[in-house]
């Protein structure tokens, strides 16, 4: 079995996380924001898998499973919201959805 630096995996995970973050920050379309959030969750899962692999324990994968179920629930509710938003406002631009404004 070859060996990989634990750092390397974590750096890859953080790059993916930051890319997801950039997506959330730069895109205006709600669908792209949801996609970017998936990326970020996935990056967090990768970090857990890496930790589990380093200590050779199953706990990392268990945590990944929880993140997975959370992401599934989140995406189903999020996409339902997107449908409603599009239905009611005829737009997907987050900049125009400012009803929570003070």
């Amino acid at each position: 079995m070859s060996s990989i630096h634990a750092h390397t995996v974590l750096i890859v995970a953080s790059i993916l996380f930051v890319l997801g973050l950039v997506g959330v920050l730069t895109r205006k379309n709600v669908i792209f924001i949801l996609l970017s959030i998936e990326i970020m969750l996935n990056a967090a899962g990768l970090a857990f898998i890496a930790a589990g692999a380093k200590w050779q324990q199953p706990d990392g994968q268990v945590m990944f499973l929880f993140i997975l179920s959370m992401a599934a629930a989140e995406v189903s509710v999020g996409l339902a919201l997107v449908l409603q938003i599009h239905h009611q406002h005829k737009t997907l631009d987050v900049e125009q959805l400012k009803e929570l404004k003070d």
């Binding site: 959330v24 924001i33 987050v94 959805l97 400012k98 009803e99 929570l100 404004k101 003070d102």
Partner: peptide
């Protein structure tokens, strides 16, 4: 402070960041 609560989602995320 209520200036910061402008309803813009991306602005909130920048705040978190």
């Amino acid at each position: 402070f209520s200036i910061s609560q402008n309803g813009s989602l991306r602005w909130y995320v920048v705040g978190v960041l």
